[in-house]
C-alpha cells in the first residue's frame, strides 16, 4: 500500500511526519525549519490558488508548495 503523503492530508488535521523523500536544498530547508521525522504537523491554511498549504510546524506557520508536500510521508493521523 502506498504511504500517505503530507499532500493528501486535508486541512485541519494533525499528522506525524515519517520520512522526507526530497533531496538537496529543499530537504535542508525542511530540516532547518524543524520538519524532522516524528514532528507533529498541523495542516492549517490553503492559499487561494490551492498550490500552497501552510502548516503549523513547531509553533511557526510555514507554507510549502504541493509538489514538495508530495515528497513528505506521514505516519498517520493523530488527534
Amino acid at each position: 500500500m502506498k504511504q500517505t503523503r503530507l499532500y493528501d492530508v486535508p486541512l485541519g488535521r494533525k499528522v506525524t511526519v515519517d520520512k522526507i523523500l526530497s533531496e538537496g536544498s529543499i530537504k535542508r530547508r525542511l530540516l532547518d525549519i524543524g520538519l524532522t521525522p516524528g514532528t507533529v504537523v498541523y495542516s492549517t491554511l490553503k492559499n487561494p490558488g490551492g498550490n500552497l498549504v501552510a502548516y503549523m510546524i513547531r509553533g511557526a506557520l510555514i507554507a510549502i508548495r504541493d509538489d514538495d508536500a508530495k515528497n513528505i510521508l506521514i505516519r498517520g493521523y493523530c488527534e
Binding site: 526530497s22 536544498s25 529543499i26 530547508r29 525542511l30 525549519i33 491554511l45 500552497l52 501552510a54 511557526a60 506557520l61 510555514i62 507554507a63 510549502i64 508548495r65 509538489d67 514538495d68
Partner: peptide, 11 residues
C-alpha cells in the same frame, strides 16, 4: 522549472 521553497507566515 519552479523550485521548492518554504514561506513563513509570521504571527
Amino acid at each position: 522549472v519552479p523550485s521548492s521553497f518554504t514561506l513563513e507566515l509570521p504571527p
